[in-house]
């Protein structure tokens, strides 16, 4: 494998520019498509960073995000909000987030944070060495999520189930009508 830094920088700059377009454009459909382009660039970046499982998952999730956002919101109302901007809020938030970024760069730059390309790997050294003999899974990511840290996956399924249940409860029509009928009767 050769040095991937130029490709990574190109993709990151593309993602930043796509996010600026997604944030600042007036048309909501353009914003949704721009954020989707950012997600696909993220998938390619995952491929360069040696994470094919994450790249595939990100691709599938990105298509679903595009469908949900367009079907759920854009098709309902695509009118741009034409009210005047709150200039004080915009300037204040920009200054505050710039300060946050600067202080974060100072803190992370001065401490013993691992450099890019030299991970610590204190825990995962054990996983890499004992993953294949103990779980018989050739893909170590699968070995971790389904064997070493299966409780995390159980929690993930619980969170996913709860969120989908919440979305269904918010979007249903029947329960509300039946309750009103009971009250009126």
């Amino acid at each position: 494998m050769e040095n991937i830094t130029p490709q990574l920088y190109t993709l990151l700059v593309f993602m930043v520019v796509g996010s600026i377009v997604a944030i600042e454009t007036r048309n909501l459909l353009s914003a949704v498509i721009s954020v989707s382009a950012v997600g696909f660039a993220l998938s390619i970046a995952f491929l360069f960073l040696g994470a094919p499982d994450i790249a595939i998952t990100q691709l599938v999730v990105e298509v679903l995000v595009l469908i949900i956002l367009i079907r759920g919101t854009i098709l309902i109302d695509n009118t741009a909000i034409e009210t005047h901007r709150d200039t004080l809020a915009v300037v204040t938030s920009l200054i505050l987030f710039g300060l946050l970024l600067g202080f974060g760069a100072m803190i992370f730059g001065s401490s013993g944070f691992p450099e890019f390309g030299e991970p610590l790997m204190r825990v995962s050294r054990v996983y890499v060495q004992t993953g294949m003999p103990s779980t018989y899974a050739a893909n170590l990511v699968t070995a971790i999520i389904l064997d070493f840290r299966a409780y995390d996956t159980l929690g993930e399924v619980a969170v996913l189930f709860t969120s989908i249940l919440g979305a269904l409860a918010l979007l249903r029509k029947d329960g509300k009508v039946a309750r009103e009928e009971v009250v009126s009767a």
């Binding site: 998952t57 991970p119 825990v123 995962s124 996983y127 890499v128 990511v141 070995a143 971790i144 995390d152």
Partner: peptide, 16 residues
Amino acid sequence: FVDPLPQALVLTSIVI
């Protein structure tokens, strides 16, 4: 190998 542990946790995070 690259670190497989963040990849496993990010896989969870994307789906959530």
